[in-house]
Simulated scan of single mutants.
Amino acid sequence: MSFSILVVDDEPDVEVLFRQQFRRDLRAGRFRMEFATSAPAALQRATEVREPSLILILSDINMPGMSGLEMLPEVRAKRPDVPVIMITAYGDAETRKKAIERGADGLLTKPIDFTMLRREIDTRLGQAA
């Protein structure tokens, strides 16, 4: 089975950064990374992937239109089986509290600690296998 991670961020450099950080994993076929540049696009993609291969959603909080925090309850309602980790430049206690209250499984602050994120992905892959 092929596993996917959905990354949601309106910044175009994010896809390049994630593909670079996980290039060995992607080449080896450990998982695929899909990218959505808005919350509505992410909701659509999360709904389309019906098999259990979607193992994690990583979403920026601050995006134009629908924010990641606004998307969170909707994606949790549509895909309660998929963990969601929010990403923000503002890792204050209030943001963390809001994210957890709305269903986030965690919160990463920018700049992203890719070593920690890799451990999280490894854990999700282990649980899905």
Rank of each mutant, 00 (worst) to 15 (best):
R102H: 10
I85N: 03
I85M: 12
S67Y: 11
M116I: 03
V75G: 05
P52T: 03
V49A: 12
I61N: 03
M86C: 14
G103V: 10
R118N: 09
L72V: 04
D81C: 12
P83F: 08
M71R: 05
T115W: 11
L69K: 10
R102D: 03
R76H: 08
A93K: 12
E74H: 14
P64C: 04
N62L: 14
I112R: 11
L107I: 07
R102G: 01
L56N: 02
L108F: 15
K78C: 11
L54H: 09
L56W: 12
E120S: 07
G91A: 07
A99Q: 05
M86H: 13
M116R: 15
L107W: 09
R118T: 12
A99W: 05
I55A: 06
M66H: 06
D113S: 02
T95W: 00
I61R: 10
K97Q: 15
R119I: 02
D113K: 09
L108K: 08
Y90R: 13
D105P: 06
R79H: 11
M66C: 04
P73E: 02
R102N: 12
T109A: 12
D92K: 09
G103F: 13
S59N: 10
E70P: 07
L72R: 09
A93G: 00
K78P: 04
G65Y: 14
R96C: 02
I100D: 00
G103A: 10
E94R: 11
D92M: 07
K97W: 11
N62K: 15
A104L: 07
D81T: 09
T95A: 01
R118Y: 07
Y90A: 09
T88E: 09
A77D: 09
G68E: 00
D81H: 13
P52I: 00
K97A: 15
G65M: 11
E70Y: 04
R50D: 01
M71K: 03
E101F: 11
D105T: 00
M116V: 08
L69V: 02
G91C: 06
L56K: 12
S53A: 08
V82W: 12
D122S: 14
D122M: 06
R96H: 11
L54I: 06
N62G: 00
E120P: 02
I61C: 10
T95G: 03
A77G: 10
